[in-house]
Structures are given as structure tokens and as C-alpha cells.
Write a protein that binds this DNA or RNA. Structure first.
Length: 392
DNA sequence: GGGTAATCGCAGTCCACAAAAGGAC
DNA sequence: ATGTCCTTTTGTGGACTGCGATTAC
């Protein structure tokens, strides 16, 4: 099973092949393995010891608590686009021993060329890579398939296999955010900003370390400062942790700053609407905070988010969600800086509409309309902005 | 205090088209 | 590396609409 982020869909290789060979645009969709544990999120790492692919959350759940599991060797899982062959898939997912040799053969010549999205693994901050070659459980039954018929048979069965409880679906996984979002807050296809916008309540809890039924506690005691509490900072030195070097520390700092920047959106929205039904991204819950909350209230104009440099940075595959760890601490000075920058930004924050292209505004200002809608030049109109009266 | 209807306000949607952006060569 | 041509995407405002919140009964 693979996960297509653009479609927010879980697909077997057969469906993946069919869906993503349809046109040039669909071929560009970035896909990756499905998490073997939750079967709903894209996998970002492979645990060599457990021989399973894990999404960010499951990886964290499984490798953060016990010291034994935290030492597991994990390797990042790359994404691919196009219609890769078996050899190409084996190349990027070396831990899968046997891909059907005919994978991707029905794609149009020249258009099915695969590309590997190395960046997809950039969110993985696990221990040094240690390649492993193991079978994917869901692919263990493909051995011996050597021709198209067998491949197709396998592919058909793979979507219904008892060992694979999740049938192919182009719909949002149950509990995904799209179906719960207010009208108009859908997920933009092919927009990286909205990738993996699929946090469920359990992630909310992980994100804030408290029940989603208690949003008021979020800032109850220490206000915004509570978000920068060092106790919530990631473990930068723990065994098997996500950050384990000076570079990791820098990322931790960056994450803190990210939170600072993102939190002003969070605060403004939390204050405007005490809505406990907030949905946050899972894989990049932290990094997407700004966008998510802004979107929920609609307070931010298009220019607002586009001009938000910090958020942009966060959305470019920068640090993933940090697990809370008591041992890790961010220097107090950095925390103070983060708080100060948050306060400064909050002071200067403006929500009024910003015109990005004056020429377009000038054009729109003189466009003739029918019930507010633009009309073709020469067509009848009921409103001309250049005339003081209607139906000039 | 609870239920229902009326009212209010917010935010999304629609439209055409020039400008901007991006891709191919 | 640069320039040209072509296609695709973006952004712009007023009216309308749907829906949640509020108010009145």
C-alpha cells in the first residue's frame, strides 16, 4: 500500500499505477509507503528491528517511550512520483526485497519516468541511516510473480488481502480533517502547504500534551509562555532521539522559534473562538500551526500567509514534530527571544487586506459587472464602477 | 427554562481577464 | 546561461448565498 499526499488516498500498487498514469499532473503526485501501524498516514521511516514502516506519529509513539525501542535503527523512506519500475522501487525502498518486475510497465513511454523526492525524508531525524533489507508485510506475498497476469492478480488481491485491512480508497481516511473542516476549508490538491493535513483528536492531545477537551488549559496558567516551556522542548541528546547533535540543537532552536511565530495565529484564534474542535496536522502539526489556525478563522488574508516568512520556512520540510522530553531543554535566552519575537510580531500584526498587484485592482475597479460578477467585455451589465448610477 | 422563528453578520463563491509565473525550446 | 514563445495560474471587487450565532417571542 502506498499513500498519495496530493490525493490524500491510500492505494495499492495496482490502483496507484492506474490513478497516477492517467495524466502528466497525476504522475507528479508524490507517493510513499503507508504506515504499517496506523494504516492511514504516509510512512516516513523504516524500523529495521521491527521491520515495519512508520509514519511520524507511530514512529514517535513506538520509539520514544521505552529506551529499548528508542535505540532501534531507522532509515528514512523516500517518496516517488511517476510510474516507477520494480527496479526503481527497489532502489528507493531497498528494504522491500521483491517488487513485481512489471510494476509501472503500462505507463506511457517517457511519461512514466520516476523521480525520487529526497526531501520527503528530510523530516526524518532519526539515528544515522542503516540500510536494511526486509520484507514489507504487505508485500510478502508477491514473491514469485513474474508476469503481468500474476502481477495483476496480486495487485487486485493486495487491495483486499486479509492481511491488509485497509482497502484502496481515494477518500479521506476516517477521522481526517477535511470532512470536519468548516465549509470552504478544504484541502488544496497538490499544494504542499496542505499536505498531511489530517490530524485527528489524538494528535491534538499529543500536540498540546493535554486533552482536547480542555483547550482552556492551554494558556491558563502561563499564557503564551507555557508554549515555550522548556519541559516541552525536544530531547536533543537522548538515545535514539530525533536530534542528536549541534545541528540538531539548531533545529530545536528553529522549532522553538517556529512555535513562537506560529503561536500568534494560534493565540488570536484561540481567543476569538474557544473552539475545542480544532484539527491540526499530524506529521507537521507544529509547523503547520500557523496556517491551520489562520485558516480556521479566516482572519488572515491571502497576503497574510504569503508574507509570513516564518511559516513559509516551516512548510518547506523543516523540522518535524518534536517529542516532548524532560531531559531536553532549550537555552533560556532562546526561549526569551522566542517569546519576545512573538510579542513583537503580535504588536505589529495587521489583518487588513493587502493589495499585491495594484494593476489588477485597478483593472477590477473598472470592470463592468452583473450582480457583482465580472462580465465579458461588450456584454450587457448592470453595474459600471465608473458610473455613479446603475445600468449606465 | 426550553423550543422555535426571525434576524444578523461573517465568510465563501462566482465571474472575466490581464498580469504573473512557469515550462519548453 | 540567456532569451523567446507559449501555456497555466493568480488575483482582483461587488453581489449573492449559506450557515452559525444571536435575539425575540
Amino acid at each position: 500500500m502506498v499513500y498519495c499526499r496530493s490525493d490524500a488516498a491510500c492505494l495499492c500498487l495496482s490502483c496507484d499505477r492506474n490513478v497516477h498514469s492517467a495524466n502528466a499532473l497525476s504522475r507528479r503526485h508524490s507517493r510513499t509507503l503507508l504506515c504499517d501501524r496506523c494504516n492511514s498516514q504516509p510512512a516516513v521511516s523504516r524500523c529495521a528491528e521491527e521491520k515495519i514502516s512508520l509514519c511520524q506519529n507511530c514512529d514517535w509513539d513506538g520509539h520514544s517511550g521505552s529506551t529499548q525501542a528508542s535505540g532501534h535503527k531507522r532509515q528514512p523512506i523516500n517518496c516517488y512520483s511517476g510510474c516507477p519500475s520494480a527496479a526503481e522501487l527497489s532502489g528507493i525502498w531497498s528494504f522491500v526485497e521483491d517488487f513485481p518486475s512489471t510494476v509501472g510497465l503500462n505507463c506511457d513511454q517517457g511519461l512514466g519516468l520516476m523521480s525520487i523526492d529526497e526531501n520527503s525524508a528530510s523530516t526524518y531525524w532519526g539515528p544515522p541511516e542503516n540500510s536494511s533489507t526486509v520484507d514489507l508485510a504487505t508485500m510478502s506475498n508477491i514473491n514469485g510473480l513474474e508476469n503481468d497476469d500474476k502481477l495483476d492478480a496480486w495487485m487486485e488481491s493486495s487491495s483486499m488481502s486479509p492481511s491488509n485491512p485497509m482497502p484502496c480508497s481515494v477518500n479521506q481516511p476516517a477521522g481526517s480533517v477535511e470532512s470536519k473542516l468548516p465549509k470552504g476549508l478544504g484541502i488544496c490538491e497538490d499544494d504542499d502547504i496542505y499536505e498531511d493535513f489530517d490530524l485527528s483528536f489524538e494528535n491534538y492531545e499529543e500536540l498540546f500534551g493535554m486533552s482536547q477537551n480542555q483547550p482552556g488549559q492551554l494558556f491558563e496558567d502561563e499564557g503564551i509562555d507555557s508554549l515555550f516551556d522548556v519541559k516541552n522542548m525536544p530531547d536533543s541528546s537522548g538515545q535514539g532521539g530525533f536530534v542528536s547533535s549541534s545541528a540538531g540543537q539548531a533545529k530545536a532552536m528553529q522549532a522553538a522559534c517556529s512555535i513562537a511565530a506560529s503561536t500568534d495565529s494560534l493565540m488570536s484564534n484561540a481567543g476569538a473562538k474557544s473552539d475545542s474542535n480544532l484539527y491540526l496536522p499530524a506529521r507537521q502539526a507544529r509547523s503547520s500551526l500557523s496556517l491551520s489556525f489562520s485558516g480556521l478563522t479566516g482572519e488572515s488574508s491571502a497576503g497574510d500567509y504569503q508574507d509570513c516568512g516564518v511559516s513559509s520556512m516551516l512548510l518547506m520540510g523543516e523540522p518535524p514534530w518534536y517529542p516532548p522530553g524532560p531531559e531536553n531543554s532549550l537555552p533560556t535566552a532562546s526561549r526569551d527571544n522566542a517569546v519576545m519575537r512573538y510579542k513583537e510580531k503580535k504588536k505589529t500584526r495587521k489583518f487588513e487586506k493587502k493589495i499585491r498587484y495594484a494593476s489588477r485592482k485597478a483593472r477590477a475597479d473598472v470592470r463592468k459587472r452583473v450582480k457583482g460578477r465580472f462580465v465579458k467585455a461588450g456584454d450587457a451589465y448592470d453595474y459600471d464602477p465608473l458610473c455613479q448610477t446603475r445600468s449606465c
